[in-house]
Design a protein around this nucleic acid. Structure first.
Lengths: 344, 344
DNA sequence: CTGAAAGCGCTTACAG
DNA sequence: CTGAAAGCGCTTACAG
C-alpha cells in the first residue's frame, strides 16, 4: 500500500503539506495542492482510515444499532440511512442487537465503546436501564429513531395520532365493532413513549370520542403468523368485529390470511387497516398508514451528520428533550381493504 | 476515555504487559493477567479499535458490499452474516452499491481501499471489469456470494439445478405449457455464472428433456409489479401457460396478483412456483425453491472468518477456482399454488 | 504557505 | 514472564 510519505516524496513536499493538500484543511497554494493531488492519483493513494481516525479523532463512520435486520421496516430505514451517509462519504457500521443477554452485554459494554464511530443511530428497541446508561455515557452524539426512552434524543412519529387517524378512518366508514391487534410491552417497561402503546392510546381515544367506550384489544408479536392466530380467535369469538386495525402491515397480512381461512370477504365482511407502508401493501390492496420508513432513515442520517458537523438545528438531537415534537410524517393511504360495514 | 496506560499504571505493570494480558497474545503469568483484567474492569477500559487496528494491522471488521438492502433476500443474508460475525467479535461495515456511477466509482476506488476492513463479502451484483479489478487488487480476502464472476472466489447455489428442479416439479404434475418469468442481464455481461441465466438454462434443459423444445420466457425486473405486468401479458396472450415458474418469490407474488386480476384460480387454472423461500411465501401458500438465505449469510460469514484465520478449508475461498462446486443448499417446498393442470 | 516534530493509543519484535 | 522502545500512518499545533 502506498503511504502519504510516498505521495509527499513524489510531489516534492513534506508529509504535512501532502496531508493538507489532500484533506483540504489548512491553507495551501493552489499549485501545491494540484501537484500533490496529481501525485496521489498517479500512485493510487487512498488514506488509511484507521491512521487518519487515530490522528484526527474523526472516524467518518456512523454506527447503527438495529434489531431484526431482516424485517422489512428496519431494512428500509437502514437503506435510507446508508444512502444519506454514503452521499457524505461516511461509512456505516452495523450493530445488530438480539435478545441474547450475553450478546447485548458485549454490544453495549464493549463494541459500542471501542471508538470506531463518530455517532450512533439507535433504531426502535426496548432498552434496559443499564443499556440507556451506556448509551448516554458514550462520548459521541446518539440519536434514536422511535426509541421509547425520553433519556435518548430521538426522532419520532406521533404514534398516538397514527392510532387515532386509523381508527377515525374506520369510524367514518360506519364501523362500530372495531378491534385493535397490537403489542403489549413487557411488564415494567417504560410505556410513555412505547410505539404500540401509543397507537393503542390513539385507538382508545378515538373510540371514546365516538362514544364507544369499549376498545377491544388483542396482543400479537408483530409477525404475520401471530396476528393470523389472534385474528382467527377474534373473528370466531363471541363479538366478531367488522373491522380490524393492525398495528403493522405485516400483522394486517395475518388478518387477511385469517379472513381468507374463515371464508370472510374483505372488505365486505371485514375491513382491515395496517400501519407502515409496506412494500407489498399495494399488492394486497391494503389500506394503511404510511410512515415512510426510507425517509425516516434519511432524516436520521441527516440529523446525525448535522450533530457531527455541529450544525444541528434541532437542539433535541443533541440533548434529549422530553417534549420534543414527534416530527416524522405519516399519511393515511386508502385502498381496497376498508369499506363501510355490511349493516350500514 | 481511559487508556491502556491508565490500566497499566493501576495494575502496576508496563503498557506492553497490560496489552498482552488483555489481548491474550504472548506469554503472561496468570497472576499478572488477573491483576490487569481487574484494573481494566475497574476503570471500565475498552481498547480503542482504531489504535489497535493501526498497531496490529487487524481491524476485526468485515465489510459487506450489498445492493438493495431493502430487498428481503439481501436483508436476510445480511442478518445471517451479521450474526456470525458478531459471535466472533467482528464488526460489520456496510457498503451499499447503487446504480449511480459516481457513487460506485467512489466505493470501489476509495471507500473499499481505506483499509477499514480485514475482509470483504460481496453479495450478488453485476460487476464491471474495472470493479472486478479493484476487488482483486485489494490486499484482503474477498468472498462473493452469488457473484457472477469467475475471477472472484464465491459461494454459490447450483442455479441451473434450481431451474431444473422447479421445472421438473411442474412437468411431473402434468404441465406442458410452462412459462418462465426471469431476467435478462444487460448486453455484454458475462452470463456464464449469471443467476437468472442459469435458472433459465435449467428450465430449458428440463423442458427439452421432456420433449418440449419450446421454453417460453418473459423478462421482468425481480419486482412484484414488473412480474405482474409481464404475467398479465402472458396470460392474456395467444398461448396462455397453465403454469408459471417465476425466478423469485416476489415475482411469483406478482404472478398471483395478475391471476387474481384476471379471475384465474390458483392452482386450478394456473400453477405458480417461485424461488427464494421468502418470508411471506407460507402466507401466500406459495410453492417455492427455498435457498435458505439466512444460512447463506452464515456460510459466507464463516468462510470469510476462516480465510482471516488462515484456517480456510476451501481453497476456492481464498483464490477463485473457476469450477468450484456450487455448494449452497436449496430445497423444493411444495405448497398450494401448484397442482395438475385442469386438462389432465 | 510550508516544514519539523510531536502525538493519536495501541502492539510487537527485541532484550533480558 | 516482563519492560523499554520503536512503529503503525496519519494530523495538527507551532514556528517560520
Amino acid at each position: 500500500m502506498t503511504s502519504l510519505d510516498d505521495v509527499a516524496r513524489t510531489a516534492g513536499v513534506s508529509t504535512a503539506t501532502a496531508s493538507r493538500a489532500l484533506s483540504g484543511r489548512g491553507r495551501i497554494s493552489a499549485a501545491t495542492r494540484e501537484r500533490v493531488r496529481r501525485a496521489a492519483d498517479e500512485l493510487g493513494y487512498v488514506a488509511s482510515a484507521t491512521a487518519s481516525s487515530l490522528a484526527s479523532g474523526r472516524a467518518e463512520n456512523v454506527g447503527v444499532v438495529v434489531p431484526l435486520m431482516d424485517r422489512w421496516f428496519f431494512a428500509t430505514v437502514l437503506d435510507g440511512i446508508s444512502a444519506t451517509l454514503a452521499a457524505r462519504g461516511y461509512d456505516l457500521t452495523l450493530y445488530n442487537v438480539t435478545d441474547d443477554p450475553a450478546q447485548r452485554a458485549h454490544l453495549f459494554e464493549t463494541s459500542l465503546r471501542r471508538g470506531r464511530v463518530d455517532g450512533l443511530i439507535v433504531l426502535s428497541i426496548l432498552l434496559a436501564d443499564a443499556e440507556v446508561a451506556h448509551l448516554r455515557a458514550l462520548p459521541i452524539p446518539v440519536l434514536g429513531l422511535g426509541v421509547p426512552r425520553a433519556e435518548i434524543a430521538a426522532l419520532r412519529v406521533d404514534d398516538t395520532a397514527v392510532g387515532r387517524v386509523a381508527t377515525e378512518h374506520l369510524l367514518a366508514l360506519g364501523h362500530r365493532e372495531i378491534a385493535l391487534i397490537g403489542n403489549t410491552p413487557p411488564a415494567g417497561a417504560d410505556t410513555v413513549l412505547d410505539i404500540p402503546t401509543r397507537r393503542r392510546r390513539g385507538f382508545e381515544q378515538a373510540m371514546a370520542d365516538a362514544g364507544l367506550p369499549s376498545a377491544p384489544f388483542a396482543d400479537a408479536d408483530f409477525t404475520v403468523a401471530g396476528a393470523q392466530r389472534v385474528a382467527h380467535d377474534l373473528l370466531t369469538g363471541p363479538h366478531p368485529p367488522t373491522a380490524i386495525f393492525a398495528a403493522s402491515d405485516e400483522m394486517a397480512y395475518g388478518v387477511l390470511a385469517a379472513a381468507r381461512e374463515l371464508g370472510l370477504a374483505v372488505p365486505t365482511d371485514l375491513s382491515v387497516i395496517g400501519v407502515d407502508g409496506h412494500d407489498l401493501a399495494e399488492l394486497f390492496d391494503l389500506t394503511t398508514i404510511d410512515q415512510f420508513p426510507h425517509t425516516q432513515g434519511q432524516r436520521a442520517g441527516e440529523a446525525i451528520l448535522a450533530a457531527l458537523d455541529g450544525t444541528s438545528q434541532d437542539a433535541h438531537v443533541l440533548a434529549p428533550v422530553p417534549d420534543a415534537p414527534a416530527s416524522l410524517p405519516f399519511e393515511l393511504v386508502v385502498r381496497g381493504t376498508t369499506a363501510p360495514p355490511r349493516s350500514s
